[in-house]
Simulated scan of single mutants.
Amino acid sequence: MSYLYLAIAIIGEVVGTTLLKVSDGFSRLGIGVLSLLFYGVCFIALSFALKQGMGLNVAYAVWSGAGIVLTSLIGVLIWHEAMQPVHMLGLVLIIAGVIVVNLFGSTH
C-alpha cells in the first residue's frame, strides 16, 4: 500500500509542477491555485506512504528521482525544451541512485 501512496505523491508532484509552469508565475491564478492543490495531495500521499512504514530514505529517493525524470520528460515532450547529452547522463545517474537506495535502503 505504501507504494500506491508513493505513486500518488509522484503524480501529484509532477502535475503540480507542470501546472506551475502553465500558471505563468501565478499570473493565471486559478491554475496556480490548482498547482498548489496538487502539491497538497502530493505531500499528504507522501506522508501516508511514510506512515505505512516506508523508509524516508527510500520514499524520498523514489519520489524526488521519479519527479525529476518525469518532469524533465514533460519539458522535452510538451514544451520542446532542449535535452543535452549531459542532461541525459544526469537523469541516468539519478535513476541509478534511486535503484541503489531501493536495493540497500531500509524499510523501517
Rank of each mutant, 00 (worst) to 15 (best):
M1D: 12
M1Q: 09
S2I: 05
S2M: 12
Y3V: 00
Y5F: 15
L6H: 05
L6V: 04
A9C: 08
I11R: 02
I11A: 14
I11K: 03
G12Y: 00
E13G: 11
E13A: 14
G16R: 14
G16Y: 07
T17W: 05
T17N: 08
L19G: 02
L20K: 06
L20R: 07
V22G: 07
V22I: 15
S23G: 11
D24F: 09
G25L: 07
F26E: 05
F26V: 08
S27A: 10
S27C: 04
L29R: 11
G30Q: 14
G30L: 14
G30R: 13
L34D: 03
L34V: 06
S35V: 06
L36I: 12
L37W: 02
F38S: 02
Y39Q: 09
Y39C: 06
Y39F: 15
Y39T: 09
Y39I: 11
G40A: 04
V41C: 07
V41D: 01
V41P: 01
F43H: 04
I44V: 12
L46S: 00
S47I: 05
S47L: 09
S47H: 09
F48Q: 05
A49Q: 00
A49T: 00
L50I: 08
K51T: 01
K51Q: 11
Q52D: 15
G53A: 02
G53C: 01
M54D: 00
M54V: 02
G55M: 00
L56I: 14
L56A: 11
L56D: 00
V58W: 02
V58P: 01
V58H: 01
A61Q: 10
A61R: 03
A61G: 10
V62D: 03
W63C: 04
W63S: 03
S64D: 15
G65N: 13
G65A: 12
G65M: 13
G67K: 07
I68N: 04
V69H: 07
L70S: 12
T71P: 13
I74N: 03
I74P: 04
I74Q: 07
I78P: 04
W79D: 06
W79P: 03
H80E: 11
E81Y: 06
A82G: 10
Q84E: 15
Q84K: 14
H87G: 10
M88D: 02
M88S: 09
M88H: 05
L91N: 06
L93A: 08
I94Q: 10
I95N: 07
I95T: 10
I95W: 08
I95M: 14
A96Y: 10
I99K: 04
I99L: 05
N102E: 09
L103M: 14
L103F: 11
F104N: 12
S106T: 13
S106W: 10
T107A: 06
